[in-house]
Design a protein around this nucleic acid. Structure first.
Length: 419
RNA sequence: GUGGCUGUAGUUCAAUUGGCAGAGCACAUGAUUGUGGUUCAUGUUGUCGUGGGUUCGAGCCCCAUCAGCCACCCCA
């Protein structure tokens, strides 16, 4: 309780009683990505601050207020990464991955950092998973990326979530739409909430998902993004929907979806779990057709998504999806008497060499305490070694579930345990 | 950055009006001299988040501070 040091605000330790759950979710993600032939990419957790400032948009809160920025000993300005897409694109450009044939399909996992006020499902250091497919504007790829996410979430066993999609058009379309929104809302400016009044100048699309009732009322008849799409944008969107149907991904169109970062174009999507509270997106993403060029590469289109492991974990716990993937030892060694305890390591090493997981607690000496410990760690077998057994050159193998026990020679042990 | 609620044993939480800091669970030992889960008995565990103030006396009241939770905001 009163330890000398405390962890930083908004961070957490992943303790042994939950770490196996993390490992499980990460493995399901990696396996799903591989099923879609995405390859893992690992980038540093800090980058030049400018990379994020330029790509995410200087007006976004992520860059203007929430970046962990620091200067190193030579005066270079770095930032702990607040998101994963810009670094992957940076690496793509820097390493000339576009020289390879075909679309680059990449996935990543790792910690991200944002100086936010912590709340449910939101931390200052949080762990994201994400994918990026760079090099194609084909609507099939949009659908494939969404299908990957859908497959991942289904593999975890989740059912309480919804998929919402939208198109935010290209830069030209977005500009026209923002203008239309500004014109629509400006006459009502006095009636809008304080936050929305500043949104009106900064990011008019954010007005659409304001939670204040009067703002929602005013926005009821606001222009809809989808009506502003040009021919190319809307046919792309229609194609994406067709492929989603083929992939059997259930979705609904939500024209109010807004992406937080500036680089998004065309397809935008969110996976939502409404039981999570205010931070209800378990993942979201979209197309970013201008980003590669902006970061210094060729003019190549891309699309990806990212999500937080914390919210998946919360969702899975709400649906009670963790049972039986905790790591437990197969065997617990019970050694009675000094003679047996003195040579216990021999038999432990024999078993471990056969890939059998073994636990032994040298602090517990009485038979009873050791049996209790064996039960507590849920070991399948106890191997009891006492004076009797030593004299006869055997050990007692006890099945802790059916309580049956047999005397066996050490040589027979591993075969019996594995059977 | 803003607001509300909350910090007491390993953990979950009590403590009446300001008057000896408690209970369940967990843990340990025993009942049973070499056999676990149930039961019974006994026992251990405290910087009352931290620092200051008021008071004869503070877990309780006041101020500050740190942290947690939830929401705003933002966003995955």
């Amino acid at each position: 309780m009163s330890s000398k040091y405390n962890l930083p605000r908004g961070t957490y330790d992943i303790l042994p009683d939950v770490s196996y759950k993390w490992e499980y979710i990460i493995n399901v993600f990696k396996n799903t990505a591989k099923l879609f032939n995405f390859k893992e990419i690992v980038t540093p957790i800090f980058e030049e601050a400018d990379l994020f400032e330029r790509s995410s948009g200087e007006t976004s809160d992520i860059v203007s207020k929430e970046m962990y920025k620091f200067t190193d000993k030579k005066g270079r300005v770095f930032a702990l990464r607040p998101e994963g897409t810009a670094p992957v694109v940076r690496s793509f450009v820097e390493n000339n991955l576009n020289a390879q044939t075909g679309i680059q399909k990449l996935f990543y996992t790792g910690p991200m950092f944002r100086y936010d006020r912590p709340q449910k499902g939101r931390y200052r250091q949080f762990y994201q998973y994400g994918v990026e497919a760079i090099g194609s504007n084909h609507p099939f790829v949009d659908a494939e990326v969404i299908a990957l996410f859908y497959t991942f979430v289904k593999k975890l066993g989740l059912t309480d979530f919804e998929v919402e999609i939208n198109s935010v058009g290209n830069a030209r379309v977005a500009e026209r739409y923002d203008q239309a929104l500004t014109e629509y809302f400006r006459p009502h400016k006095e009636s809008l909430c304080y936050d929305c009044q500043t949104r009106l100048d900064k990011k008019p699309r954010r007005l659409l998902d304001c939670k204040v009732k009067t703002c929602q009322e005013i926005g009821k008849d606001a222009p809809v993004m989808l009506d502003y799409l040009d021919e190319e944008c809307s046919s792309h969107f229609e194609q994406v929907k067709k492929y989603l149907d083929q992939f059997q991904v259930p979705y609904s169109v939500n024209p109010k979806i807004v992406r937080g970062l500036d680089y998004y174009t065309h397809t935008a999507f969110e996976f939502l779990n409404h039981k999570l509270g205010a931070q209800n997106a378990i993942g979201a993403g979209g197309r970013y057709n201008g980003l590669v060029e902006q970061i210094g590469g060729k003019s190549l289109p891309g699309i990806g998504f990212a999500g937080g492991f914390e919210r998946l974990l919360l969702s899975m716990e709400l649906e009670n999806l963790f049972s039986g993937n905790e790591v437990i030892p197969q065997v617990f060694i019970v050694a009675i008497g000094e003679k047996a305890q003195a040579q216990v390591a021999k038999i432990i090493s024999l078993l471990r060499n056969e890939d059998i997981s073994v636990e032994y607690d040298p602090e517990k000496t009485s038979l009873k305490a050791q049996m209790k410990a064996a039960d507590k760690v849920q070991a399948r077998y106890a191997i009891i070694m006492g004076e009797d057994e030593l004299e006869r050159g055997v050990v007692t193998l006890k099945n802790l579930q059916d309580r049956k026990q047999v005397d066996v020679s050490p040589a027979e042990l591993s075969a019996l345990i594995k059977s």
